[in-house]
Design a protein around this nucleic acid. Structure first.
Lengths: 108, 108
DNA sequence: AAATTAGTTCATATCTTTGTGAACAATTAA
DNA sequence: TTAATTGTTCACAAAGATATGAACTAATTT
């Protein structure tokens, strides 16, 4: 019943991981910083949509921006984000495996 | 532009972290499994609300349930969830520190 | 059998998130 | 100066998440 405020802030940061485009961006940026138009080229979709998602990630401290005269370069603010993300991917993989086993045992 | 489906599944699992009550539950369950009514006592709020959130977490493979005749015991499905969660908390802490430094430098 | 306990399910109202396209700004190149 | 380039911002509609309280189910106790 304590620390509700901290839980809210914590959840707020975690929310940044809860969208497929944002997950894709995190994945892409693991190799290093990229400018807006390169990210757009990799993800596809509308530039307005990407811009909004990047701005969410920056304000949540997931990404940082470096503004050049000709380009905005985005990068992960910390390797912790990438680590958390890949842990959650492992959880996903385990879920998928369990589902698969379930299917097998039903069909057997 | 590849693997959109995987990103969607990945984001789906991460969404489970994006709510303060669910974060609180993860935090509480780090010490070990607890039954529904004990979790409710710690978090407060309506049982219907808690029940719905727990069910989301179970279907996302974040939690598992063990059903006893008198109680439903919930626990973390994997320590990876707790790790991911605490990495994200560190990201939050770093954000708060940066904000604090900013405030300091403005007020100076 | 009647009442408790322990929790789930459902319907609903509200709030938030998302994607979309158009308009806008700032810098650079022709 | 005019036209490109590189994004951001805005308004809006559609979809999704959240909290709430009432109704419900299943097992246990009295």
């Amino acid at each position: 019943m304590k620390d509700k405020k901290v839980y809210e802030l914590h959840a707020e940061v975690c929310k940044a991981l809860g969208n497929s485009l944002r997950i894709e961006v995190i994945d892409i940026l693991q190799k290093g910083e990229l400018c807006f138009s390169d990210i757009l080229e990799e993800t596809g979709g509308l530039k307005s949509n990407l811009s909004q998602h990047l701005s969410i990630m920056v304000s949540n401290g997931i990404l940082k921006v470096r503004k050049d005269s000709r380009c905005n370069y985005y990068s992960l603010s910390s390797s912790k984000v990438a680590k958390a993300c890949s842990l959650m991917r492992e959880v996903l993989i385990e879920n998928l495996k369990k589902q698969q086993e379930l299917h097998k045992s039903i069909l057997k």
